[in-house]
Nucleic acid binder design. Structure first.
Lengths: 338, 338
DNA sequence: GTTGGCACTCTCTGTGGTGGAGTGCCAGTC
DNA sequence: GACTGGCACTCCACCACAGAGAGTGCCAAC
């Protein structure tokens, strides 16, 4: 159906449109991409490509621009992987050095991704499903108010307020001892199960306190699963200020909604490789004229969370995909090493 | 110099320009604000106001718009305090209910402020200078890697990685005991001083570990002072997409730079009341065509941090100031109550 | 299957003209 | 002396229009 030359033409149209930002005509195509045919031939091919839905004209007698379907074919079959520049590679290597905790790693990652791709970057907090409970602390703030603190083996610290109900320091210490003895080394999920069982084994005087603390623990482990997403590179939208209503505004609005971001990233999850959603392929209506390039990150065996960028459908897919892939891999390795 | 009527005219110009977004002429002014004089009289007064630098014309034979100086006078002397609507008041009351920790309070505050003012909101993390050390924990992650965790009396939890240098669990426990005994109840500043002295009193075998931990503690207390700022309501910039280059872009860029935000908010600090920086009064060059309305928040005796909004110089100052003031007061009270 | 030629279409740019809003100024009035 | 009505003037915003340029589709020829 589409012979080699038509594919080359589509590739050239996508490439040219992405870099020039203008509909591309047959003459320019022949000149800039050294196709050894005449513009007329290219026009015939373009007519076919248009009929098949890969390209379109903004209006009669204008050049062609790729459709979502055209970009899709380009991404699937035509985009040569563009290797990162050494500068970019070095940036990735050095950007993470000196990160002090997970927050910091996530913040640095988002900046890095935004800088390399020159787009808006989104990084989801890792769900360290392999991490185990390392330490559990109950700190008394006032007779009634306490704080349950959970530290996992990856160095993540979470806290939750807990109502101590006036329990004595001894009771609190007792409970802490029991919980630590029972839960250390377990995964969060198993820890919650175990804690649920534990409550029945507690002496009567510790039980009310135990119930309150374990409830807090449950909230902590269920509520947490990286509801959190960090965003960066928003000023990069400046490059699309001409398309304010179709591109800038919807992105700004989506960025404000954690839920939307999680959906955007979330639905690509499961794979460790880069996924691309182009235009209308996106699950979120207002972003129908933008694309999302995302990837899971983690170890070989375990995907922790996702990261990616969002930009106009007219983006440089090969470069963006290469950058997202490289950053995802690097962050995965970095976190695995601790 | 400026009699009562000229001030009324200035007030009317500011009000009209803010709501209509168009240069305002003498005729419209007379009609809409029931000035009991003729347009010609208003024109004479406007000529004076222009000469004094309070208003200007975008071009000859256009209406007038306020200058930064005009807005300043308006804010200082002419803006009647606009009370919050009951809906807004109720929003403030209910928005905070159910906040689980400081992160949550800050996030909710920023959303609230953005929603009420319909502008971009910025909230700085509170520096709870009155808070004291409540608990100090050293968690071992691996023989070499540990985590120093500091809990203060306000329920804030901070952590920092620390190199344990292979110290035995007994040594770690010993050090934890000593630190807790020595530091609990002290303010962060005093705690660091005390810890510095403590290192010399340590037995020789604990000393290297002690030095490492105390170094981490120092980092924690000095680095922390709310370097952190949270931003919300960015999509509200959509209302100014016509002024992309002068308003939207600089704001987006400033928002990416924590340092800039801290400066913006920081330089208004010290007072518990609302401060307004109009246009060129801002310390940050690119924001010269925007205004910042900010306020410290805390208790009567103690300012913890700042919050505010940033928007175009052409903003509804009375409403914005009222909202910022109300939110700052409410958050201060909310945090004080715990 | 490919190509050169040609008529056609549509956007973009610049030009000139017009209407309207608003001003500044002046002479007259209270 | 302050205010007002009138008037000439300025400048923007809007519109219509023409011409250039880019690009196309189609057709006949190779």
């Amino acid at each position: 159906m589409l012979d080699e030359r038509k594919l080359s033409i589509l590739r050239a149209i996508v490439t040219d449109y992405v870099s020039m930002r203008e509909p591309v005509g047959s003459r320019a195509l022949v000149e800039r991409y050294h196709l050894d045919v005449s513009p007329a031939t290219v026009r015939n091919d373009m007519a076919v490509l248009e009929e098949e839905g890969y390209i379109m004209q903004p209006h009669t007698s204008a050049g062609r621009i790729p459709t979502d379907k055209g970009y899709r074919l380009f991404v699937d079959r035509l985009g040569a992987v563009k290797p990162l520049s050494t500068a970019e590679r070095r940036a990735i290597e050095t950007f993470m050095a000196g990160a002090v905790d997970i927050d910091d790693v996530v913040r640095r990652t988002v900046r890095l991704l935004a800088q390399i791709t020159q787009q808006v970057a989104i990084v989801q907090y890792p769900i360290l499903s392999g991490a185990t409970v390392r330490h559990l602390e109950i700190v008394t703030l006032s007779p009634d108010r306490g704080l349950l603190i959970l530290v996992n083996s990856a160095g993540k610290v979470d806290q939750r307020p807990v109502d101590l109900g006036g329990a004595s320091p001894e009771l609190v210490a007792d409970l802490r001892g029991r919980l630590n003895a029972a839960l250390i080394g377990l995964t969060p999920t198993r820890a919650v199960e175990r804690a649920g069982a534990l409550v029945d084994e507690l002496p009567a005087d510790v039980r009310p306190l135990g119930a309150a603390v374990i409830a807090a623990l449950l909230e902590l482990t269920t509520a947490d699963p990286s509801t959190r997403v960090v965003v960066g590179g928003v000023p990069n939208l400046a490059r699309f200020s001409d398309q304010y209503e179709t591109t800038v505004r919807p992105v700004l609005e989506a960025l404000e909604e954690q839920v939307v971001l999680l959906r955007l990233l979330g639905e690509v999850a499961g794979t460790g490789d880069v996924t691309v959603r182009i235009g209308r392929e996106n699950p979120y209506e207002p972003l129908r004229s933008t694309s999302v390039v995302a990837s899971g990150y983690g170890t070989n065996s375990d995907i922790w969370a996702n990261l990616g960028v969002v930009g106009p459908t007219r983006m440089d897919y090969p470069s963006t995909m290469a950058a997202v892939r490289a950053v995802a891999r690097y962050v995965g390795r970095f976190l695995a090493e601790g």
